[in-house]
Design a protein around this nucleic acid. Structure first.
Length: 254
DNA sequence: AATAACGTCAACCGCTCCGCA
DNA sequence: TTGCGGAGCGGTTGACGTTAT
């Protein structure tokens, strides 16, 4: 198969987009949708190849793109997802609304890789901190059977309990751990803070309530589970985990 | 003030995947 | 079943801005 001529040979423009080109592309897509990317530049009157238009739209002009620095939570999420998925930037981006694969890839190479490297050097300290997690966590049994594969339909909540065998003894619930039991220098790595919108939307918990989950006792189960439902649209891992565990724990159980 | 070194990020390249005829 | 064309993905590049010397 003969490769299509590159943009330059076709007399098409390359390089940074001008505000005028952006305007043309945005107004065309707003009116007609993008449809066929290859045909779009000609129809819109742009001297660009379709590929370039698609990239400009998906990485920069799309209205739902979140601009600005990545929050600490987003960075933690990327690190966690990268640990599970590797360089599957688009899959990672799918779980971070408003962020593009390109942006995530960039932030990984410029910030997070270094950050992880630095953390690695202090891993001894981290290990020491992890050992502060009360031993009853070890008795949490999580037995989550594998799904058919990535992208397989999410089971309904009624199906969930039938396919999941999770044994969390109430007294072992992480939320029972009192703040003073956690070494303040280590708590961030062990207890990621859950975004309050997560609770207000899904669980109707008071907005001001700060609930923290332990990471280490269920990390393996979350990781394994995440592999299996990774294409499910944007639902938080913890929420999925509890769904599969047969329901969301009542606040009173904490 | 000049410039070298470094960091960031938008954009491109080339490949694979997937749907369709 | 096979080949083609379009879309999407991940790796890489290069321009530009910032910081250090």
């Amino acid at each position: 198969m003969v490769r299509a001529p590159c943009c330059e040979k076709m007399g098409l423009k390359k390089g940074p987009w001008t505000p005028e080109e952006d305007q043309v592309l945005v107004s065309y897509i707003q009116q007609h949708g993008h449809g066929n990317w290859r045909a779009l530049p000609k129809l819109a009157g742009l001297l660009r190849c379709g590929k370039s238009c698609r990239l400009r739209w998906t990485n920069y002009l799309r209205p739902d793109i979140k601009r600005g620095n990545f929050s600490k939570e987003e960075e933690e999420t990327i690190i966690k997802l990268h640990e599970m998925l590797g360089n599957r930037w688009s899959a990672i981006a799918a779980r971070l609304p408003g962020r593009t694969d390109n942006e995530i890839k960039n932030v990984w190479h410029t910030h997070l890789k270094k950050k992880l490297k630095n953390n690695q050097t202090s891993s001894d300290t981290k290990l020491k901190c992890d050992s502060n997690v009360p031993s009853e966590f070890d008795s949490m049994e999580l037995n989550i059977p594998p799904q058919e594969g990535i992208g397989s339909p999410q089971p309904s909540s009624s199906e969930v309990s039938s396919v999941t065998d999770i044994n969390v003894q109430p007294n072992n619930m992480a939320m029972k751990i009192k703040d003073e039991q956690i070494d303040s220098t280590c708590s961030l790595s062990i207890f990621p803070e859950i975004d309050e919108t997560f609770w207000s939307e899904e669980f109707s918990v008071e907005n001001e309530l700060q609930v923290q989950f332990p990471l280490s006792p269920v990390r393996e189960a979350v990781n394994e589970y995440s592999y299996n439902v990774i294409d499910d649209g944007g639902m938080d891992f913890w929420y999925n985990l509890f769904l599969r565990a047969g329901g969301i724990p009542e606040l009173s159980e904490f």
